[in-house]
Design a protein around this nucleic acid. Structure first.
Lengths: 121, 121
DNA sequence: ACGTTGCTTTGATGGATGTCAACCTAGACG
DNA sequence: CGTCTAGGTTGACATCCATCAAAGCAACGT
């Protein structure tokens, strides 16, 4: 009976069985929804892909920003959203800031959405 | 150079390689982001899990609504959001309406988030 | 010290979103 | 036909969000 939820830390969330396999507890839903929300924007989804697929596993903001027709502050805002969702990490090295994907959370989300191969699409 | 995107149908999206494996085109990002967005709410994430994990693969609204401390219209609104995102299907049978998960899109999202097992969490 | 470049933060604004009350529609049953 | 129940739709409201211009901060070069 998942009435309402109190937020819990992502660290306490056990790496979840698939959504379709057993009922997702309200607290886990509350903890994981922000990550999906962060991916729910085309710009952030592309940023995530650019970062995760970048050679060396990291991408400089200076390479990310010019790929869009958006202002610098807007890209910075989206990157902050991804950071706060726990999907990426940022590190400053000298003049530039590098972003790197955090595969742990991505794996949790992928696991949640896993569907048994039996049923048709 | 993924500048801007024009929306394309989900049907045209080839079942995607992982985000981290190759650059996600802008059009695909624009097509798939709404699905992540729909999952980016704790209530909808729980609804999705209740529907997908229900016995027989389908759940009646009459069973979903009382599981939350939310009004009927609000649950109906969230279900509409999931429907418009392509994540669930609705079917009326007599008095009741039954919702069923659409595993195709879920598989696409899961595939996108798949991470090679090499790197640590 | 000074100016330049890279990125983030702040403030403002228009548009989207979650929620509920009120109303409406579709079936079932007399 | 009338009425009851299950859901969806509409309208209203408060909040959140994407975006940009302007200002701020950090590192490098001179």
């Amino acid at each position: 009976m998942p009435k309402q939820a109190e937020p819990i830390s992502l660290l306490e969330v056990p790496c979840c069985p698939p959504l379709a396999q057993q009922q997702l507890p309200a607290e886990v839903a509350t903890a994981l929804a922000p990550a999906f929300k962060a991916l729910g924007d085309p710009v952030r989804l592309q940023l995530m892909s650019m970062i995760a697929s970048a050679p060396g596993g990291e991408a400089c903001v200076c390479d990310l920003t010019p790929a869009f027709t958006l202002s610098g502050p807007t890209i910075s805002h989206h990157l902050k959203t991804l950071r706060e969702a726990g999907l990426v990490d940022a590190e400053r090295r000298g003049t530039w800031v590098y972003y790197r994907a955090r595969p742990g959370l991505m794996r949790q989300l992928a696991g949640l959405l896993t569907v048994s191969p039996a049923e048709a699409g």
